[in-house]
Amino acid sequence: MRFGVVVFPGSNCDYDCYYVLSQVLEVDTVFIWHGDKDLKDCDCIVLPGGFSYGDYLRAGAIARFSPVMEAVKEFAEDGGLVIGICNGFQVLTEAGILPGALLPNKGGRFICRQTYLRVENNQTPFTLLFTPGEVVKIPIAHQQGNFFIDPLYQEEIKKQIAFRYCSSQGEVDANHNPNGSWENVAGIISKEGNILGMMPHPERAAEKILGSEDGRRVFLSVIKWWEEKRWK
């Protein structure tokens, strides 16, 4: 299988994702330039973190108009696997590919720190190597990660929550919500389950030397899922 990491001008975690996929996990990985519509036969598209187009106007607001996003949208509608990390998650919500919006953090500041996440759903291509309720350690680094969803859709979206911020013991509460997200949401999947958006950076937690290997299981899940084709 092949991963494609999209490079927007201003992406800054593109190489980190590329490194983890190609060097650490040793899977076929290519870069995809924002101006291209050709997804190069990739099986999973990664929208990396950073400040695409400077995040001017609003995080992710300009990136959604780029040529590559037309192709990503089509790819996703056909059931292709897409992971949006941090700014990539913001781009996916701006593009309407995932529901909700990412508002400025409660407190207004950029926050870079390790966070604990509780795995809420392991029946997805991105989380099948986790156990339900498992607590994992993956860092965040963002200024706009406060997940918001219209009350009308809240009930529906609850089923789509993939990760929630929690304590090291797995308690999900306001004390362990770094940015004010609704329901402590750290990551959600699409209704069909083929798209994941998450604010924490799994590529920053994919090697022992960086203090956590929990993040690599997000990518390994995708690889395993792909190999087994067990998702329909």
């Binding site: 983890v20 870079c112 920053r204 090697e207 030397i209």
Partner: peptide, 15 residues
């Protein structure tokens, strides 16, 4: 320093 991204580049092994 938590207001700064001190991890991007995934080289910061002692934070």
């Amino acid at each position: 320093f938590e207001q700064y991204d001190h991890m991007v580049g995934i080289n910061t092994v002692r934070l």
